[in-house]
C-alpha cells in the first residue's frame, strides 16, 4: 500500500527466552489512528517499544523481524534518529520536573545535543503547544515548571514534547489511564486533531476510548496479533471469538 507509514514484518520480541511478541504482521497507513487492545501482559507495550527501538534498551531484550518506517527497516537506522521520528507518550504524564514548560517542549533537542536559536525554539514551542491544544492555556506561563499543570495538561505537554521533534508516528501507551474524564476527553479531542498531520498508535485498556478515537483496532492475545480490523467492525461484529470474549468482558 503506497500510503503505508509503518509496517511490521514477522516481528518478534523476547525478554531473554521469553517470547512475548509473536510473528506480528501489520500495516498502518499515514494519518490513521490505531488502537491496540488486549489483556494485561499480552505484549502491547513490548510491541510498541519495538517500533521505536526502546525495547532493546532493556538488558536481555531482543527482537527479530522487521519494522519498516516508510519502507526502511528501523533496525538498519540510527536508533536515536528512530526515537526522534517515532515519538512516545507514556501512561503517566512525565514532564521533566526541573524544566519549565518551555524547556520541556524542546527537551528532545537539548537531550540530543541539537542547538537551536532562540527564535527557532520560540517557534517550535508555540507550534508544538498549539498542536497539542495547550498553547492558549499556558502561553502566559511558559517559564513555570511543567509540573504545575493539571494531569491532562501535563499529558498534553508530553504530547507537545513528542510533536516538537516532528515525528512521523506517535506511540501512546495508555495515555489517559491516569487522567480524569475531563482531561481524558481533552486528550481524546487532541487525537482527533493530531490525526490530520500524524499517525497515532494508542494502547488502551479503555474499550470505549478505542471505539471513540481509532480508525482501526488491533487485538493482541498472548503475544499474537489476533485480529486487526476497522474499529466499527471490531465493536459490532468481531471476527475472532477471542476478540469477542475480551471486548464483551467474557474472558475467563
Amino acid at each position: 500500500m503506497e500510503n503505508t507509514i509503518v509496517k511490521a514484518e514477522n516481528y518478534n520480541s523476547y525478554f531473554g527466552d521469553n517470547h512475548v511478541v509473536k510473528d506480528v504482521n501489520i500495516s498502518i497507513h499515514k494519518n490513521e489512528v490505531i488502537a491496540v487492545m488486549g489483556p494485561s501482559g499480552c505484549g502491547k507495550t513490548t510491541f510498541l517499544r519495538g517500533i521505536n527501538r526502546m525495547h532493546e534498551l532493556i538488558p536481555g531484550a531482543t527482537s527479530k523481524g522487521k519494522i519498516l518506517l516508510d519502507g526502511e527497516n528501523v533496525y538498519d537506522m540510527n536508533a536515536i534518529y528512530v526515537r526522534a521520528k517515532i515519538g512516545m507518550v507514556f501512561q503517566r504524564p512525565n514532564p521533566f520536573p526541573n524544566l519549565s514548560i518551555y524547556e520541556n517542549v524542546v527537551a528532545g533537542y537539548l537531550l540530543n545535543g541539537i542547538k537551536l536559536s532562540k527564535a527557532d525554539k520560540d517557534a517550535i514551542v508555540e507550534k508544538s503547544l498549539t498542536s497539542a491544544a495547550l498553547w492558549k492555556e499556558v502561553k502566559d506561563s511558559l517559564h513555570k515548571k511543567g509540573t504545575f499543570l493539571s494531569g491532562g495538561q501535563q499529558q498534553r505537554l508530553c504530547i507537545a514534547r513528542a510533536i516538537a521533534m516532528q515525528p512521523e508516528l506517535i506511540l501512546f501507551d495508555e495515555p489517559t489511564s491516569a487522567l480524569d474524564p475531563i482531561s481524558t476527553s481533552s486528550v481524546e479531542a487532541l487525537f482527533h486533531e493530531l490525526k490530520a498531520n500524524y499517525t497515532l498508535i494508542i494502547v488502551t485498556h479503555n474499550m470505549q476510548q478505542a471505539a471513540r478515537v481509532s480508525d482501526r483496532t488491533a487485538f493482541f492475545y498472548m503475544g499474537e496479533l489476533v485480529e486487526f480490523d476497522d474499529t466499527k467492525q471490531m465493536f459490532t461484529a468481531p471476527r475472532d471469538q477471542r476478540t469477542q470474549n475480551y471486548i464483551t468482558g467474557r474472558f475467563s
Binding site: N25, S27, R216, E224, V226, E227, F228, D229, R242
Partner: peptide, 8 residues
Amino acid sequence: GKKGKSEA
C-alpha cells in the same frame, strides 16, 4: 486465527 492473518 493463528498464522499470518494479521495483515489487513
